[in-house]
Design a protein around this nucleic acid. Structure first.
Lengths: 320, 320
DNA sequence: GCTAGACATTCGCTTGTCGCATCCCTGCGG
DNA sequence: CCGCAGGGATGCGACAAGCGAATGTCTAGC
């Protein structure tokens, strides 16, 4: 008694429901078959439904008939002939929209604009990008580089869909959804001959309070050396060097020590030792993938976050 | 009490009703204004209507939201951004269809394919065409030439919209709507020196039973000389000449006499006399504008038939 | 003249959609 | 700190659009 074949007088829901503007399908099918009855069968409707659809369409179009009613079937009038290409272009557009939206929904299409801070580009982002692109080749990914506050602003303004940020910048993060990627431990780079080089386990930053520092900026606030302030001393910056490779050179030459975020610490020259820093206060700075709050993530965004997470756990740590 | 400003709780009918796919207009207005409420005001709807339109549209599209709901208004999601150009192209197509159909409806656009038999092209059709083109310059008119039976066949097959035909061909005319243009009287062309040249009033065809005839074909059946058969004699065809100008030369040279349909008798050389033929049987052959039966005439067709009628009454008759 | 095919129309009935009122959430200002 | 205002979501009652089924009407063909 359940699955009878007839199922009369019930609305069968549209199986594809591709924005189906009913009259459009009716019109095109009728124009294809030259018959209301045949078109109705093809559409799974009744003949009366088709008749009324066409009828009301004609009425809406100013009363001009679209079909000549012949004894056997119908034939397009001039007005109908005019309408056909437009109807087809509408169907084309709707079908195209459906296709692209489906691709977007399944993460196999669309656009993904993301930004990342510079050190994330050392290993995390390239790995994630490679994995994501291999999995979702149809997504057009664009990348921007910038500091966390700037990235967050562009996120809010709608110029970015996702940003890889860190908590360094003291920026207010309440307006964003944060997808935790990793807790980035800090390392201090010292010359291989440094007394602490052989030290087992993490070192307390306070033990380097008297050292000369190589840093990206003169003032520690807002940079990595912020951690030194938290450790209770104001570091003396001996040299301002931005690039990590260059920093290594300064450190190796014994001109000072430098703080290195874990993400940048992939390759170290043998005459430099990396010591994990014991951060007893707040945990080491965290790295997040941020999206604007309240927005649902697209499949592409989800996939990219997943790729970032995988990359985060696969990024080699200098000292296990 | 009549024209209150509010008019609440009543369906206001769409003023343009341009195939309005409701969700489309809602979506585009919302995407333009970034607000359901403002879009609703612009559309003359309530906010709840817009909200539900967008909501069901999103549901139909697989559940992907098209807008991010922000505390103040909304903003397009990636999915919405993808949909916009498609929606615009659909609106474009619908608007274009509306424009072209309106032009068609008012006779200022569209296509008109007609055919006419050769002698109608002497004066009737050119006059009508000129008048019609002056009145409806937007209509693309194409012309074919052919004999009545062939024209009617092409009409039935849908290759022509209208045909200027005559009753000569004994073709079955029941399948067509005939718009009477004129009753074409016959003339007989004789040399100016012919004994009948000065005859007052119409002549009976039988008086030329012994004459030599100039005709378009050897056998009278199906041609103008059919009239001779109806008059009770079989004309002797002395020369076969198709073109009216050439016929005139043969007649002027005294090589015979020729039948001339009124439509072809616009210009006669002075050494040829045209005598109206008294046709006592069926009235002289009629000329019609034929359309397929059951089809409603477009405005352009109506206009063209009117132009043909005017031309028919304006065509100069050799002898009033 | 009768039959078959095809579109139009009528009749209940379901269902979608609207307006209205209200609720909920967020951000702002006193 | 709390109320207020702006803006979207939702429940409710009602109306109209649209459907299926059955019937009417017209034409062609035998």
């Amino acid at each position: 008694m359940s699955s009878m074949a007839a199922m009369p007088n019930t609305h069968q829901q549209p199986p594809d429901a591709d924005l189906s503007t009913v009259w459009l399908r009716a019109f095109l099918e009728v124009s294809r078959y030259g018959s209301f009855t045949v078109a109705a069968r093809a559409l799974g409707w009744t003949q009366s439904a088709v008749s009324r659809q066409i009828s009301s369409l004609e009425a809406e179009l100013g009363g001009a008939p679209l079909f000549d009613r012949l004894p056997r079937g119908v034939r397009l009038t001039e007005a109908g002939r005019v309408l056909v290409p437009y109807a087809e272009s509408v169907v084309e557009a709707l079908r195209g929209a459906g296709r692209e939206l489906a691709a977007l929904r399944e993460g196999t299409g669309g656009r993904l604009r993301f930004g990342a801070f510079a050190t994330a580009d050392a290993a995390l982002v390239p790995h994630a990008l490679a994995a994501f692109h291999a999995r979702s080749p149809g997504v057009r990914v664009t990348r921007e580089e910038g500091f966390t506050p700037a990235l967050l602003e562009r996120l809010t303004a709608g110029h970015l869909d996702l940003a890889v940020v860190s908590t360094t910048g003291h920026a207010p993060l309440e307006a964003y959804t944060l997808h935790h990627l990793l807790d980035e431990s800090l390392y201090v780079a010292v010359p291989a001959a440094h007394p602490l080089a052989g030290h087992p386990g993490p070192v307390r930053l306070g033990r380097l309070a008297d050292a000369e520092w190589i840093s990206g900026g003169t003032r520690p606030e807002g940079t990595l050396l912020d951690a030194a302030l938290r450790a209770g001393f104001r570091p003396r910056v001996a040299h301002v060097v931005g690039e990590w490779t260059a920093k290594q050179g300064y450190v190796a030459a014994g001109l000072g020590v430098a703080l290195v975020p874990a993400l940048a610490a992939t390759a170290v020259r043998p005459d430099v030792a990396l010591l994990p820093v014991l951060d007893d206060g707040a945990p080491a700075r965290a790295v997040y993938a941020a999206t604007v709050r309240g927005r649902a993530l697209t499949r592409a965004e989800e996939g990219f976050v997943a790729a970032l997470r995988e990359a985060a756990s696969a990024v080699p740590r200098p000292m296990a």
